[in-house]
Simulated scan of single mutants.
Amino acid sequence: MSDLTSPQAIICLADEYRTDALSLALRLGLPAELVCHSSSNKDLPEKMKSLEGFVLLLGEEGVSLQPLGKKAPGPTRVDFEGGAVAHRRKFGGGSGQMIAKAVGIKASRPLKVLDATAGLGKDAFVLACLGCEMMLYERNPVVSELLADGLRRANQSLDPELQSIAQRMSLSAGDSLQQLADSERVGVVYLDPMFPDRSKSASVKKDMAAFHQVVGKDEDADQLLPLAKSVAEYRVVVKRPRKAPFLNDESPTYQLSGKTSRYDIYVNRKLPD
């Protein structure tokens, strides 16, 4: 990883998390001396304030990504229990959601879905809420750590429904191209690669700006589609900005479009009744 996509430090928000922080540094290939201590994310070590990029915070709320610099937004973490994700779980429209229609979900037909570009796991969580057995691939080491931490907390939740949903989600860290090439057949493959040609006028929420910086552009995204089609038993679903070109310049079997995004569906064969 380049300097701006590697943590400038791993900050423990309490001494009890230092062992976990050292383990995280080891997994990310970072020297132990980058593990520091601070009482809160608002009181980062002085030497951090002049740096660019981000740090990783470890505390009571798990692992989070904190951008550095003036006017930086607050930390980003994976939280399946609260916020917008929880609201969507309870009030998101169930199988009537466009993503559910694109994947082909029916109450009487559980599906095994491979999300090969998992990111922060929001779409995978929606599908797991609707009964899908989800396999998640994420190649960015930092994002994978955030996602793994969110899944760990969901599995330890006092909410039995959330625990049940989280147990339908399994994460595999590593390059999606290689993992797809080695993958067994699965019902549906879902792709949502980072779109490289975002318009300058397009709005990006401040709390996601650091995430975009860490992930970068999926310049090799076109290579995902033929691999996904070879793995999917029934269909490949590709989420794209509404006006974006087709992935790998391949026209889909059909599309579902919304105001800002669309789903391109590549059908291999009909889903079972």
Rank of each mutant, 00 (worst) to 15 (best):
K205V: 01
D220Y: 14
L225H: 02
A202Q: 13
L224H: 02
V214K: 00
A209I: 09
F211E: 09
A232G: 07
V231G: 08
G216E: 10
L224A: 00
A209P: 08
H212E: 05
S199E: 14
Q223I: 03
A210N: 04
E219T: 15
P226H: 03
A228K: 01
V204S: 07
S203F: 12
E219A: 14
L225D: 07
L227Q: 01
A228R: 07
L227D: 02
K206N: 11
Y234F: 15
A202V: 12
D207R: 01
S230D: 11
P226F: 00
E219K: 15
D207G: 00
K206Y: 10
A202S: 15
A232E: 12
E233N: 11
R198Y: 00
Q223C: 03
V204W: 07
S199L: 10
A221H: 13
K229N: 08
V214S: 02
S203Y: 09
K200I: 01
H212A: 05
V214C: 04
K200N: 13
S230I: 06
A228H: 01
A228D: 03
S201D: 11
S201I: 01
A210C: 10
A202D: 12
E233H: 13
Y234C: 06
E219F: 15
Q223L: 07
D222C: 02
D218Y: 02
K200R: 14
S201G: 13
V215L: 14
H212Y: 08
D220W: 12
V215D: 06
D222A: 09
R198H: 04
A232C: 06
L224P: 01
E219H: 15
F211L: 14
A232P: 06
A228F: 00
V204Y: 08
R198A: 06
Q213M: 12
K229R: 14
A202W: 11
Y234D: 10
M208A: 04
D220L: 11
K217Q: 11
Q223G: 07
A202C: 09
A221Q: 13
P226Q: 02
A210L: 05
E219P: 09
Q213W: 06
H212C: 04
D197M: 15
Y234G: 05
A209T: 13
V214Y: 00
D218A: 04
K200M: 10
A202G: 08
D222S: 08
L224Y: 05
S199N: 07
M208G: 03
A210D: 01
D207L: 03
V204T: 10
V214G: 00
M208Y: 04
V214M: 03
R198D: 03
K200A: 07
A209R: 13
F211C: 06
S199F: 05
E233I: 15
K200G: 10
K217F: 05
L227W: 02
E233Q: 14
K205S: 06
S203A: 11
M208K: 05
S230P: 03
A209D: 12
L227R: 05
V215A: 12
V215E: 08
E233M: 14
V204I: 13
A221C: 10
P226V: 01
E233W: 13
L225C: 01
V215P: 01
F211P: 06
S201K: 15
D218S: 05
H212N: 03
L224F: 05
K205Q: 11
L224S: 00
A221S: 15
F211Y: 14
K200T: 04
S203D: 10
V215T: 14
E233L: 15
D218L: 03
D220T: 12
H212R: 13
A221E: 11
D220C: 08
K200D: 11
D222V: 00
